[in-house]
Simulated scan of single mutants.
Amino acid sequence: MIADFEGYINRVDNAANRDQLRTVLTWVQETFPQLEQRYAWNQPMFTDHGTFIIGFSVAKPHMAFAPEGQGMVHFAEQIAAAGYNPGKKFGRIKWTQDVDYDLLKQIIQYNIEDKIDCTTFWRR
């Protein structure tokens, strides 16, 4: 259940984009039920034992996923192959593109495993 994120989701003007965002956030919660929901820095995010795993944000042309810079570097080839527009710490999925759930799963799993002993919110 992503009730904590509904206020954010409902601010998305386009109904199809709103539904897509809700679908992605619900998928993350259902696929990784151990992750905790957190709303901070004006975006929905998921954490594990108090450390950041992934966040999402929206803009008019896209939805962004943010796995931190290390996650972007680790999956740079796959992100490019999916046709997503990469930034330094986040990737952009155009609303017209399909969401590659297998890639998202790999990215999230990587962060969970890589940050298993992390005691800070962000990597150092």
Rank of each mutant, 00 (worst) to 15 (best):
M1Q: 10
M1G: 15
M1K: 13
I2L: 12
A3H: 11
D4Y: 01
D4V: 00
F5T: 03
F5K: 12
F5W: 05
F5C: 04
G7Q: 02
Y8G: 03
I9H: 01
I9S: 02
I9A: 04
N10K: 11
R11V: 12
R11L: 11
R11C: 12
R11G: 15
V12K: 13
V12D: 10
D13V: 02
D13K: 12
N14H: 07
A16W: 01
A16F: 11
D19F: 04
R22V: 04
R22G: 05
T23S: 15
V24K: 11
L25Q: 02
L25D: 03
T26K: 06
W27V: 14
V28P: 15
Q29E: 01
E30L: 14
F32N: 06
F32E: 12
F32Q: 07
Q34K: 08
L35V: 02
Q37L: 14
Q37G: 13
Y39Q: 13
Y39H: 10
A40N: 05
A40L: 10
A40F: 04
W41G: 08
Q43W: 01
P44I: 09
M45D: 03
T47E: 07
T47K: 07
D48A: 14
D48K: 11
H49T: 05
H49I: 06
G50S: 12
G50T: 06
T51L: 10
I53E: 02
I53G: 03
G55K: 00
F56R: 09
F56A: 05
A59Q: 13
K60S: 15
P61K: 09
M63E: 09
M63F: 09
M63V: 03
P67I: 01
P67S: 06
P67D: 00
E68P: 04
E68I: 14
G69S: 10
Q70W: 02
G71I: 12
H74N: 11
F75P: 00
F75Q: 00
F75I: 00
E77G: 10
Q78A: 15
Q78P: 14
Q78W: 13
I79F: 01
I79R: 02
A80R: 08
A81G: 13
A82R: 08
A82D: 08
A82Q: 11
G83P: 02
G83I: 04
G83L: 07
Y84T: 05
N85V: 09
N85W: 06
G87E: 08
G87D: 04
K88Y: 07
K89Q: 08
K89V: 06
G91I: 00
G91H: 06
R92G: 01
R92D: 03
T96S: 13
T96Y: 03
T96P: 05
Q97F: 03
V99N: 14
Y101T: 01
D102H: 11
L103I: 08
Q106E: 09
N111S: 02
I116Q: 15
D117A: 13
C118I: 09
C118Q: 09
C118M: 15
T119Q: 14
W122P: 04
